[in-house]
């Protein structure tokens, strides 16, 4: 897994590549909890994510709960179909703001 963080005035975005499982979830958790900022829009871009297990979903849920205390939703962008299906069967789709593309794609 590789994480690349983009910080702008109005949003923070994490690009997450590769595999998000129980071996990489702790690193993702650290990066995501560090990155989220209640004063901005918060996005996780999964365009190049190949794999996710419940360990990765767990981290997203922790971050979403933290944000929801401030009335905001975490945005997940550009998920591949097989990743999106894991979101759907886990009942995660309504808990996040899900976008088919990263709106800040360069």
């Amino acid at each position: 897994m590789e994480i690349n963080e983009v910080k702008k005035d109005t949003y923070n975005l994490l690009n997450v590549n590769g595999r998000l499982d129980s071996t990489t979830a702790p690193e993702f958790e650290k990066a995501l909890l560090n990155s989220i900022d209640a004063a901005k829009e918060n996005l996780v871009n999964f365009k190049d994510l190949k794999y996710i297990s419940s360990s990765g979903l767990r981290v997203l849920l922790v971050a979403a709960k933290k944000l929801s205390a401030t009335g905001k939703k975490l945005t997940i962008t550009a998920m591949q179909d097989h990743i999106k299906e894991v979101f759907d069967i886990s009942g995660f789709t309504g808990l996040f703001n899900i976008l088919p593309e990263n709106p800040y794609e360069q």
């Binding site: 360990s55 979903l57 767990r58 709960k65 929801s68 069967i89 886990s90 009942g91 808990l95």
Partner: peptide
């Protein structure tokens, strides 16, 4: 699976999947 974000439990998803 139908709980709001605040009520949603962190664990147990693996077996569900």
């Amino acid at each position: 699976l139908d709980e709001d974000l605040d009520e949603r439990k962190i664990g147990g998803l693996g077996i569900h999947i």
